[in-house]
Design a protein around this nucleic acid. Sequence first.
DNA 1: CGAGATCCCACCCCTACAGGTGTGGCGGGG
DNA 2: CCCCGCCACACCTGTAGGGGTGGGATCTCG
Lengths: 240, 240
Amino acid sequence: MTQSQTETTSTARDEGRAAVTVALANDYEVVVQGLERMLAPYGVRVEVAELDMNMPVGQPVDVTLYDTFSQPQVDRDAIDRILASPWAGKVVVYTWNVQAALVSTALEKGVAGYLSKTLSAEELVDALERVHRGEVVVLTGDPDDEPGEDDDHEPSEGPTAGDWPGREQGLTAREAEVVALITQGLSNQEIAERSYLSINSVKSYIKAAYRKMGVDSRTKAVLWGVEHGLTPDRGRRIVR
Amino acid sequence: MTQSQTETTSTARDEGRAAVTVALANDYEVVVQGLERMLAPYGVRVEVAELDMNMPVGQPVDVTLYDTFSQPQVDRDAIDRILASPWAGKVVVYTWNVQAALVSTALEKGVAGYLSKTLSAEELVDALERVHRGEVVVLTGDPDDEPGEDDDHEPSEGPTAGDWPGREQGLTAREAEVVALITQGLSNQEIAERSYLSINSVKSYIKAAYRKMGVDSRTKAVLWGVEHGLTPDRGRRIVR
DNA sequence: CGAGATCCCACCCCTACAGGTGTGGCGGGG
DNA sequence: CCCCGCCACACCTGTAGGGGTGGGATCTCG
């Protein structure tokens, strides 16, 4: 009943407006597939056109959603390449790393949206639509975000969790990200820099992850990562 | 001309005697294939029946040749399992590790041949035939081996080198073995114990290998190993 | 023949990096 | 309240790795 009401409401609100076409970008198939599943219930508003793993956008889309799981943050040039693509449309960053410095770097580079992974799926869809309409949207999950704007924060519908490799094996998102970066060959210090964590935090995550993985050395962790999909994928899946 | 003379000689000597059937055992396909190629010119004397990677012998053979590249030595129980197989026939060890302690352990366990990898292909074939005839053969490459026996040490024919993963990339056999053990997740100390080298030798090999591989950390070395076939294989190839 | 290269093997000194043990704070949810 | 996830810290030990050295055996070439 509530479900059908939601559909009706959405349809009424978006009457005569085409769905936003979105490309999903991240190096791990599990991640982009998790995003796809998250957005699926909102198909009339947001249409996933393709999933890009380690590949540039392959067709013109309205928005490219860049998930930063185990990826360079916006202070590195990966985002520049997406921004430079004539097909990527508006570029939106979807991330745990909501530090102000990263936000401002992103905006300076021309990123049109900087969204925290704490958003619900509906909030994410709202934001994508707003970006498509020409707004610059920053939602870091901070209650002070967008002061004086849109206070109807009723409980949102839809899951808040995407997916990530290692999840089935019990790793939290952050643990998995750290393990993925290990599996990419990075040292602890490099991981700290890449993920905007302190070296101590990295070590803590490693410790916790190793316990769950049942390994006691980095070498074994890399092998575990290779076997459990923690190595980056490469490819493109055209949905539309 | 010399070639045809050799053939004629071999045929005359082995008249009326079937070829020795041999299973080749090692965890790396490249290694057992290298052995297969090494023995191929001697097909009328030694017939390779199957290649076993991480698998028990699958059919009755006269001799099983166990190559110790990146494998447990005879002081571990891997050899016990081969010896216990009703199909393995006589078990021969082919190795760089010719320490007296290992030789005596092997013989105590019932190994019928302990052969150094410095032997030529022809010497290897000779040894396999002798084992098949019921002899216990130890050839460590020491000039004092088998005193007073068979002094016609004319230059042997056939290559002395088998094959190993990483060879194409410029790694020596020992370097490759150490890298393979790293890629199996072993620590330096564990590698030293497994390969009967000092910890210092292990480090030296690692240093030299890393230079050739273009890596500077164990993590990257493992990834290199995974990409270049240094992870153990699994399977059986029936030739006969 | 001697020199040089290569491989196997070993060693030393030192620094860098990884990892174990333990601690604590904050926010959210049950 | 407890639990979990995210985040951070301190202290300490263990492991890894860089630079350098040298010996023995074998092979190739001048």
